[in-house]
Nucleic acid binder design. Structure first.
Ligand SMILES: [Zn+2]
Ligand SMILES: [Zn+2]
Ligand SMILES: [Zn+2]
Ligand SMILES: [Zn+2]
Lengths: 131, 131
DNA sequence: CAATTGATGTAATAACATTACATTTCAATT
DNA sequence: AATTGAAATGTAATGTTATTACATCAATTG
């Protein structure tokens, strides 16, 4: 799935996120797209839903914000669980994948017959640059 | 920290959460405490802040809800990172601790000089009983 | 008692997200 | 080209979650 196949609204939202230094809330995205014709939150949320589905954007549950995927071409979706560090000072987000963690979580779930859906791993703190 | 040292509002909120089948939103807690004199969201949020601080309650970031700690007497705080499975059908929450996962996350952070604050691990899905 | 601190009450507002419904776009099929 | 069905869009209204601001009250302590 490349940018080419996106609709206008999806493309605009992804563009804003891609050029942002850090994660943005839906309403911040809306504000940045007023000049492009966006008028209502739903325009943003609908675009975000699709971008999340395509694996081009991640939602950070602990801060109610969205961030462009750091490596969308490598099929972030396929890499399994994505974990994040989130700097509470500068907003910098780092994505990573850890197979050991993933295996531990999967095995915990399997042992209890828990059918795993979406998994959230987010570390909030202070990045090296802000320490 | 035992229930004895809690203020009236804190005790009421913890009581509601402790007797609930699953996680509750702040506003649901508020509704359940109207008869006890609660009138405003802040009464709930303030009590929750303290209960979170005491380690008696956990916040589930991915569903904006709160749950009583499953083993408050064992010093959940001290056990390090708490992970959760959350059944999206019945709301059942299971708390667990995994030192391997914790070590992996800590070492990832340390390698990057990221100072770790609060860490969220939440698996949403379907529990054995709801499958 | 005066001062400080922590907790509470209340109203208002901010921030985040969804429902509902009408309309448009666009590709597939006839 | 016209039909049509699915996906996307526009807009308003509403619902849900959380915080700010300010006044008051209660317990502690010097
Ligand atoms: Zn990614
Ligand atoms: Zn930083
Ligand atoms: Zn706990
Ligand atoms: Zn269940």
């Amino acid at each position: 799935m490349t940018t080419q196949t996106l609709t206008r609204n999806q493309g605009l939202v992804l563009d804003v996120l891609s050029h942002s230094e850090g994660p943005l809330s839906a309403y911040t995205i809306l504000d940045k797209l007023r000049d492009s014709g966006f008028r209502a939150p739903l325009q943003v949320y609908r675009a975000l839903d699709k971008l999340l589905e395509f694996g081009l954007v991640h939602r950070l549950e602990s801060i109610n914000a969205f961030v462009a995927c750091a490596h969308p071409d490598e099929g972030c979706h396929a890499h399994g669980i994505t974990a994040f560090t989130i700097c509470e000072t500068c907003g910098k987000v780092t994505e990573f994948h850890d197979h050991v963690i993933e295996d531990r979580l999967k095995s915990f779930a399997k042992d209890r017959n828990f059918k795993t859906g979406k998994t959230t791993i987010e570390i909030r703190g202070t990045c090296a640059g802000c320490a």
